[in-house]
Amino acid sequence: MITNKSYMLFFTIVCLFLVSCKTNTLSYKTNAEKEEPIKSYDLDFNWGEGGPNEFAEPGLWADADPAEHIQWYKDMGVNTIQTFIVSCNGYAWYKNDIVPEQPGLKYDFLPEMVRLGHKEGMKVMGYLCIGSNTRWGMEYPDYSYGYPNDRHIPYTQKYLDYLDQIIRDAVGKTGIDGFMIDWFYQPNRSSNDGKWLDSEKQLFEELMGKTFPGEEQLSEKEYDVYSRKAIAACWDVIYKATKETNPDAIIWLSAFDITHPHIANSKMFNQIDWLMNEAGDMEGVQAVKEMIGEDTRLITCLANWNDQDPKVIVPAAIDAGVGLFGFRKPDSSSLLPPISKYLESPVDSLSGDDKNIAVLARIYNNLPIGYIKKNKINE
């Protein structure tokens, strides 16, 4: 028989347990909120003239000076730099034995960025485009749907072996705090008139345990199952290579279609350290909040292609505890104009990436969006 005294003791224990659970939950949220906000930018070496597609020709900006780049990022106020392990042309930004370096690479660029960035208290992140690599497409035509400036690489074992090598090499040698992965979707097969490569048919059979039925007979449902399996297998290689080399290395996924059915609600979303909605809208960020791991940090993006208004997105991201990122192709100097130039002009007098940089530079430097730096020459 339960006495009043026993009941009160039981009730007290239950209440203490519930308070403990609530306290732990609040503590986690408080700790997450206390993390330094992500304030990041990328002078984007992917895009430029001279290559066989719209990606930069090998060696473009090979004379980039890490000290000048660090100063530019410092003036912008970033705490996280995104630069490159290998850019989309397929050549590396550090001197190594795994992937050929950018022809004429003057400095050991990535390790120097890490060394100098760490002295300034900044994280330095690399970059790998998972779905596109011009050099890979040209050297391994049987394992690539050409080499357009689009996703063209199926995730065959040969390609996974390449990713495993380069990730272990870069994370182990350069000192990077982690790296962004990008264009992590299935390949666009239009350059092959929609016909599958034999190497990808074999991958289908390995993952699905059945013979490839043919392009016309492959149902959308079956294609989605295959696609999720292929991306998951590739993710497992990326995750294992990274965390076995440095458990603290950050893996940062950039997704231009963050709710795509081939990646949404995946193990990758649960394990990823940083997840970014490259489309920039806060609705996309909100849509994946229930799909991510408890330690995953969310980021939104400002870039000319996504046509977001930085005066709207930046305050909304800050209010939501979401990190900020932007990117733009550099000019012929491998840099962009000094940050002072962006601060001297009213934000609303600028457009596109100039406006994005102007807003981010103010926010990153703890200045109001309406701040205008006086030009001493005109005083």
Rank of each mutant, 00 (worst) to 15 (best):
292 I>S: 03
314 V>I: 13
250 I>H: 09
297 R>T: 08
290 E>F: 00
325 F>I: 00
355 K>G: 11
271 Q>C: 12
139 E>H: 03
10 F>V: 06
334 S>H: 07
309 D>E: 13
305 W>G: 02
205 E>P: 11
331 D>W: 12
375 N>Q: 12
91 Y>H: 15
286 Q>A: 12
350 L>E: 09
38 I>L: 08
164 D>N: 10
292 I>T: 13
73 Y>I: 01
263 I>Q: 08
235 W>M: 09
173 K>Q: 12
80 T>P: 00
58 P>F: 12
184 F>N: 09
278 E>A: 14
309 D>S: 10
287 A>K: 05
49 E>V: 06
17 F>D: 04
63 D>F: 05
21 C>M: 05
146 G>E: 00
204 F>N: 06
157 Q>K: 02
217 Q>N: 15
303 A>I: 01
88 C>S: 15
280 G>S: 07
20 S>H: 02
203 L>N: 15
99 V>F: 06
270 N>V: 07
323 G>E: 08
187 P>H: 09
159 Y>H: 01
285 V>Q: 01
11 F>S: 07
57 E>I: 06
14 V>Q: 01
286 Q>F: 04
241 A>H: 05
19 V>D: 03
273 D>R: 00
137 G>I: 03
268 M>E: 14
183 W>P: 01
278 E>P: 04
210 K>H: 13
96 N>A: 06
160 L>Y: 01
310 P>K: 04
330 P>W: 10
289 K>Y: 04
191 S>V: 07
361 A>K: 06
87 S>N: 13
105 L>C: 03
41 Y>E: 00
118 H>K: 09
368 P>F: 13
70 I>F: 03
294 E>A: 06
240 K>M: 06
151 R>H: 02
88 C>E: 14
81 I>L: 00
284 G>W: 02
361 A>V: 12
23 T>S: 02
315 P>G: 10
348 D>V: 07
161 D>M: 01
203 L>V: 14
289 K>M: 13
130 I>T: 15
27 S>R: 03
241 A>V: 04
214 G>K: 07
5 K>G: 03
359 V>D: 14
114 V>T: 08
347 V>G: 12
